[in-house]
């Protein structure tokens, strides 16, 4: 973890709100993407960002190891997202196929300065990736998101999930294989 984040965490633990704000600024986009991978809805993902950081603030003093801070935040974000998804399912709010890439995301995607062909290609890629991620069992999904989206090492993921590195390796391998198969005809 960067020295900057360690210093900010130490200050935030003493109640320094400015330091906490900097932590939010550094991690908010990664947390959003993590949340979005689990619930592909921009409003829900942003709510998860808020929930994660409010929870994080309330847990700050209980964080003993600064080294595992980033892992702790991503684990918290994934747990918030999974809990929310469960609640949504209970409410029987199902995300229709059209909502897999909601209108607001379409707008974001179309803002990119790319040719229309590239734009269509990226939307197609997002749909494929989203469909695979959605179908993965929880542990494979977490391993894939934490490794290839949040950039955690296998050792960090093992620590985050409380399982052996071998379990992370095999889950990650299976998840990537499913993604690879789904992308085989892409491009």
């Amino acid at each position: 973890m960067s020295a900057k984040l360690v210093a900010l965490l130490k200050s935030a633990k003493t109640g320094d709100i400015k330091a906490f704000e900097q932590i939010v600024r550094i991690l908010e986009r990664r947390v959003y993407m993590t949340a979005y991978a689990i619930i592909p809805d921009p409003d829900e993902a942003m709510d998860i960002v808020q929930e994660t950081f409010v929870k994080l603030y309330n847990h700050l003093k209980r964080i003993r190891s600064e080294a595992g801070f980033k892992c702790f935040v991503f684990k918290m974000a994934t747990n918030c997202a999974i809990d929310r998804k469960r609640r949504l399912k209970r409410k029987k709010i199902s995300l229709s196929e059209d909502e897999t890439v909601p209108a607001s995301v379409e707008i974001e995607l179309s803002r990119r300065n790319e040719s229309p062909d590239k734009d269509v290609e990226r939307r197609e890629l997002l749909k494929i990736v989203q469909a695979v991620v959605d179908e993965l069992p929880p542990r494979q999904k977490l391993c894939l998101i934490l490794a290839d989206l949040d950039g955690l090492s296998k050792k960090e993921i093992a620590k985050t999930l409380g399982c052996p590195q071998g379990t992370v390796r095999s889950n990650l391998h299976i998840a990537r294989l499913k993604l690879r198969r789904a992308l085989k005809d892409f491009r």
């Binding site: 908010e28 808020q50 603030y57 974001e108 290839d148 989206l149 992308l183």
Partner: peptide, 30 residues
């Protein structure tokens, strides 16, 4: 390609204004 494909989620990031409002709400909550 499979490993890099996860970066597609960078495309779904909302603009800075949405993060600014969310941050304000977080800070006012804490």
């Amino acid at each position: 390609l499979a490993k890099d494909s996860m970066r597609i989620y960078e495309d779904v990031l909302p603009g800075a204004a949405k993060f600014n409002s969310a941050r304000k709400r977080i800070l006012s909550a804490v």
